[in-house]
Design a protein around this nucleic acid. Structure first.
Lengths: 295, 295
DNA sequence: TGCATCTATCTGAATTCGCGATAACAACAT
DNA sequence: ATGTTGTTATCGCGAATTCAGATAGATGCA
């Protein structure tokens, strides 16, 4: 049972056909068929049900598939571990929420890139849900997402804690003006990284019943929508102060107990932490409070 | 990077030489050398320091070794998982303390062997320490040992709780006779599975200072030594009642708070639990208390 | 029927693998 | 000195394996 055979097997299982797997693996169909057959002969069981429009996994194949995937990942990781002599080098792929990236990570990324020019940094942005899926799939080594995550296969470390504020059109002077209306439009991300849920909770708590969400894909659009009077949104307070000072919107504080969010870094607990990642986390880790008393 | 290459690599690393690895792998030395070399060329780093009396791992080799071992185990497990269709079958290798085996496991083993003739049962006996090492090394699928174990890589489930009694030569009528002497010989297992520690604690608590251990490898010998007047020992109460009733020794109760032991089943939490093992544990698991009220 | 889309199988060339023999080297005993 | 032993490296050859391409067979669809 060769690792290459398992890679073939996993590809066939994933795409559901020997032909398609062959083109994906840059080889010919006869080759794929032969290797699957030798695998089946070696194990003494059929792994696929052959159909006239592709193949499906048998029960035995379903039992094998997770091992095939694990072995493939383990070999990948082994290669990286061997090359990783402690000096950050090569590609480092991490994920981050768009807000975290803009707010906290930008200077860290710049400093890190300057300190380790040997590292090719790749940053994926997405929602918490998407990023967690990417971490689990080994697409990224880890990601900054909204915590807590509490996933069995993931380790998480708290990095930032943000206070959130409500952004409303400039015509809204006080939060009460808004809540008294009884219904309100909110502008949020599609799968909304907890911001949406928090905002809804805040409004519900204040007696707003008709909450109508508008979904936009990026922060810039959300901000413009708010300033154009379309609705309100929720964003980190520090983001407002540092980026937009144009007074096109009104900013409303919310008690911190209700409106804060923690950003955690999550990574697979069974995966290698590359030297590049280890150093990056040192850069990103906030200075402990007692050490920045002078601020 | 082939799985077979990694197996070769791991063997060379373990025995510290290509020649010895070759004979262990049932092949010739030139073959081992060639595969190690291709592996090194593929990875672009040297994995071994060649010496005139064998090889040693380089830093890169040390980083690779755990992956080589993991991959090898994972492939083993994959083979078993594929063949395991839910019906207990094949070889089931578990470990057990000698006392647990004699006392609690014997009827379970018999019933299980009768119920599943397709399973080849293999039982390893040893001390808690030895058995845990065997579980970690995948030599046995799991083992009944003295708990609690509290090991990061192991899951444990409590199976039995035994009250322990002191066995002394027949001439000793009361425990006080023994403790008043101030020194006493104890007869125990070599690495003693906690029995020794517990017995010493009991004696120390009663003011005995000169404890002289005699070590014997199996229970039968220990029992005979006690009956011959050599010293005292500690054994599960139920073992005394069910096996030896010849009155060649005197039995002394000890408060349960001091002298009890829990037997747990431990297994690697990252390893497959075969159907054979799953069923075995069902057989071995004690009937819940409320369900045997009629006893 | 003809076409498209699958998988299975066969064949010959290229490649790899495993073995045996040999070389080179160092340590150690004679 | 000299031979012996134990080690890794290398080469050549035959066997085994792998790969790509061609072909065959089956099925569904227009």
């Amino acid at each position: 049972m060769d690792a290459a055979d398992l890679k073939f097997f996993a590809a066939v299982a994933r795409v559901g056909g020997m032909n398609r797997a062959a083109s994906e693996l840059n080889t010919v169909q006869s080759n794929v068929t032969a290797r699957v057959r030798t695998l089946e002969e070696e194990l003494g069981v059929a792994l696929f049900n052959r159909g006239h429009k592709g193949v499906t996994l048998t029960a035995a194949g379903q039992r094998l598939l997770p091992y095939a995937i694990k072995v493939t990942h383990l070999l990948d990781e082994a290669r990286r571990a061997v090359k990783d002599d402690g000096e950050p080098r090569g590609r480092l792929t991490i994920g981050s929420l768009e807000t975290s990236a803009a707010l906290r990570l930008a200077p860290v990324l710049a400093a890190y890139a300057a300190a380790y020019p040997e590292v090719d940094l790749v940053l994926h942005t997405g929602t918490t849900y998407e990023l967690i899926a990417q971490v689990l799939d080994h697409v990224v080594e880890g990601a900054f997402v909204c915590g807590p995550v509490n996933h069995q296969d993931l380790l998480e470390e708290v990095f930032f804690r943000e206070q959130l504020v409500i952004l409303a059109p400039r015509t809204i002077r006080r939060l009460d003006d808004l809540t008294r209306k009884g219904h309100v439009k909110i502008v949020v991300h599609p799968q909304g990284c907890a911001y949406r849920q928090i905002l809804e909770n805040i409004l519900i708590k204040r007696g707003v019943v008709g909450i109508r969400p508008l979904e936009f894909g990026n922060i810039e659009t959300i901000y413009r929508s708010v300033s154009a009077g379309l609705g309100i949104t929720l964003l980190p307070k520090s983001l407002i102060g540092s980026i937009w000072r144009d007074n096109a919107v009104s900013v409303h504080e919310v008690p911190e107990a209700e409106a804060h969010i923690t950003t955690v870094f999550v990574h697979r607990q069974d995966a290698l932490i590359s030297s590049a990642l280890k150093e990056f986390l040192k850069f990103a880790r906030p200075v402990p409070v007692q050490m920045r008393a002078a601020e």
